[in-house]
């Protein structure tokens, strides 16, 4: 029982548990909070995979940004007083069956794959390599991402503006 193993199982448990909670809890606010937990757990998974930079990015953007946005959206679309957020889900069985089937399909492929070897040695500074890659081979993609962000910004602003 290595540290790695224990750590993995712990993080996995948290991740799975909070994911289930996200989709099952009737209260939408709680769901968002559980999502935050799941996102942090994902970051932990990244750490387990020796990617501290990605862990940081995950926490910053996802757990920080996305959760904030969603909270604001919930506030703007639900009446806080009176009609409490009724979050009944429907057709649980159908959804469960389909989701389970999809999982079974993916797992089937995974089981048929040849078992991979141990993880190789990680040489060098990954973060620096990422940085160099972003302005090197992936420069164009990076720039396009910037364009996408601008477009998304403008789009979101347009949609959310008040009608006057």
């Amino acid at each position: 029982m290595t540290v790695e193993t224990v750590g993995f199982w712990l993080v996995a448990a948290v991740l799975l548990g909070s994911s289930l909670a996200v989709v099952l809890t009737p209260n939408l606010f709680h769901a968002v909070l559980y999502l935050a937990a799941a996102l942090v757990a994902t970051g932990a998974v990244f750490l387990l995979l020796d990617q501290p930079f990605l862990f940081a990015v995950q926490l910053l953007l996802y757990a920080g940004g996305v959760v904030t946005i969603v909270v604001f959206a919930i506030m703007l679309t639900e009446r806080l007083v009176g009609e409490r957020i009724r979050q009944t889900s429907r057709h649980l069985i159908n959804g469960a069956i389909v989701a389970a089937a999809v999982f079974a399909g993916i797992a089937g492929f995974l089981l048929q794959a040849p078992p991979a070897g141990p993880r190789p040695e990680q040489t060098g500074d990954v973060t620096a390599s990422i940085g160099r890659a972003l302005v090197g081979p992936f420069a164009v993609t990076f720039e396009l991402l910037g364009v996408l962000l601008v477009a998304g910004l403008i789009g979101a602003l347009y949609f959310a503006r008040s009608e006057e």
């Binding site: 996200v22 989709v23 919930i74 889900s89 057709h91 959804g95 389909v98 989701a99 999982f103």
Partner: peptide
């Protein structure tokens, strides 16, 4: 794969639009 399936379940069953988006996040 598990997290993906759970997220898919959420997309399929949530009634609230924001809830669906949470599933997509997962």
């Amino acid at each position: 794969a598990l997290v993906f399936s759970i997220g898919l379940f959420g997309v399929l069953t949530r009634r609230n639009a924001v809830g669906i988006l949470l599933g997509i996040e997962l």
